[in-house]
Nucleic acid binder design. Structure first.
Lengths: 334, 334
DNA sequence: GACATCCCAGCAAACGTTTGCATTAATGGG
DNA sequence: CCCATTAATGCAAACGTTTGCTGGGATGTC
């Protein structure tokens, strides 16, 4: 029903190739013809069919972006940054949400594969080997995970987690807890390793409570376990869980930071607005989104660059952490 | 580089049409041939090109979903509900964010047009006439706006706003304010009309402060104007603005609900977790997402149904509203 | 044994574009 | 005035599929 290139050609008395060139290579067609074609195209309401075009050029000018959970406030800034960067490069971003489900994730990559020039796989939940396999079907850039041989952009969550633990220890906490995130998350493993190492180095006890859904409810539900663990300082997989945890502790009559100190990760917008304001590890999500788009787009030029970039994180101390039962040794010699 | 149907045909010694049928109409091909084709397809890593298929079948099994701002917590539940419903119907959802920009919105609809079977236009910011024009290029379902002649799903925000105003008046507030949302929002106009009517009916004064960005910052920035208006009860365009407003009032030393009562709209997840807990008008966003998908999909069957459905809203009274300076008259005769 | 039927598979056109090559007309140089 | 160059357009193949039609062989019926 919609007008095709052939309709326009017929109506303006030229060959379809001339119509095609009018749109994709205007300088190759006579100014007069061009304006005539343009006029009839306009009157017929003709729009080039991008899918058909992509079939032959091999480029869709679209980028797929897959996230684990669109409701997680961690992602929107990244998505928006990616969209902005894509717009600059004359591309569009199509977002899809996997519901934290590895199967859905695979299905979505395949569905997107031929309709986009590449896919930004953010916080994937599937296995490395599957990611490698999929990367043979469609150009992939992995965000929040390191996969050998593939272009990746990650944040230094390990460094962030270490600093968070050191911060707690520095405040005098010796009994710590780590509120882990979802199974399958690379970030979760990194945080875990780093937290364990940092706790060991500081001679502090660390109870790992894992896995948990990376949501407020996940944090809330774990409050009881945290209390039972005897920890006075806890690091959560993300801000959402930290906020949920604080709520759960509050409901149980445990005060933050007076009784227990809590630090989150991500520095989502609302971390600044909770009470107490959340101490957290800030992640450069916007920069990550931009970098991912750039990597994908330049990846086309020189094949197999497979750069892997790591963006720095930063500990932001606010009001959800306070002095622990053990006085910090720093009052002495240092 | 990826294997095509032709490669599989060659490798398994059959015609391409047989390969095609092996995937899209298995019952038409001999079981033995089928398994042979399947095997070589597997070994070659062949995946049908959905774009090429769509070119000829006219169906992509994809649905576009366009929202004004993916960072607004109002949308994710709707998106997720739509995704779930789409999955049930064997379709995929591609989400795009317009940044509250009508131009981007138009651009996105056009970009999506030929790659999806239809577009769910949620809270559009562009004009009705443009929407009508675009609906001739791609099947559209409009959410959160009534457009004559097009399938729409809206929520009864007018009713919700009226009830909110009545609630405030009932508490003894006579000086009210409406914190308006963005220009171009149908919902905003509906709320405004309903609030003005309800205030007039109750003989209360209503100051309209508009337009504002529909975000926490938008609410926060308007706090001063609200205070200056002398209002003791205010209705905000959405919860985000209400939360920002409360924060702004708090910063100015104005207490909620002791000095000023605030009611929001949407009942986003965090409205239950703020302090004070937010009184708000709940919107059935998930139901809206599901309904929109269904309308789009069945729209294909019988043309020009253009049903328009309205979902009910509900006032949820929590802690951000309290008694006003004027005692409710209900103490007397009623 | 002749005929109708059915199952499979091949053939080729179609979907809406792009693009290398061929063709034509116009221009400029000597 | 001839030839070489350039500009503008047409031609047709290609992209990766689907699908109506055709035909050949096997089967079943009388």
């Amino acid at each position: 029903m919609p007008a095709t290139i052939r309709d326009v050609a017929r109506a303006s008395g030229v060959h379809i190739s001339t119509v095609s060139r009018t749109f994709s290579a205007p300088h190759l067609v006579n100014a007069e013809t061009r304006s005539r074609v343009l006029a009839t195209a306009e009157s017929l309401g003709y729009r080039p069919n991008r899918a058909a075009r992509a079939l032959i050029t091999g480029r869709t000018h679209n980028i797929g972006l897959i996230v684990a959970d669109i409701a997680n406030p961690f992602f929107p800034p990244m998505i928006k940054a990616a969209e902005g960067q894509a717009r600059l490069r004359d591309h569009h971003i199509f977002v899809a949400d996997t519901n934290e489900d590895a199967l859905v994730e695979e299905d979505l990559v395949r569905a997107l594969a031929k309709q986009v020039d590449g896919v930004l796989l953010c916080s994937p939940r599937m296995s490395n080997s599957l990611i490698e396999q999929l990367s043979r079907e469609v150009p992939l850039v992995v965000v929040n995970r390191l996969v050998a041989g593939l272009p990746c952009v990650v944040m230094d969550v390990a460094g962030g987690a270490s600093r968070a633990i050191e911060h707690l220890v520095g405040l005098g906490h010796r009994e710590l807890a780590l509120l882990g995130g979802p199974r399958g998350s690379w970030t979760n493993r990194e945080i875990r390793k780093a937290a364990i190492a940092a706790a060991k180095a500081a001679d502090a006890k660390l109870t790992v409570i894992s896995p948990n859904p990376p949501t407020e409810d996940g944090g809330l539900a774990a409050a009881e376990q945290v209390i039972k663990s005897g920890a006075t300082g806890v690091l959560a997989y993300n801000d959402l869980m930290a906020i949920g945890l604080i709520e759960g502790l509050d409901a149980a009559g445990v005060r933050v930071p007076a009784d227990i100190s809590v630090v989150g990760i991500d520095d989502i917008a609302s971390a600044r607005r909770t009470r107490p304001k959340l101490t957290t590890v800030a992640n450069p999500t916007s920069a990550a989104g931009r970098a991912a788009v750039d990597m994908l787009l330049q990846h086309g030029d020189d094949r197999r660059t497979t750069a892997q970039i790591t963006l720095q994180t930063e500990l932001i101390v606010r009001d959800s952490t306070g002095p622990g039962p053990h006085r910090a040794r720093s009052s002495g010699k240092e």
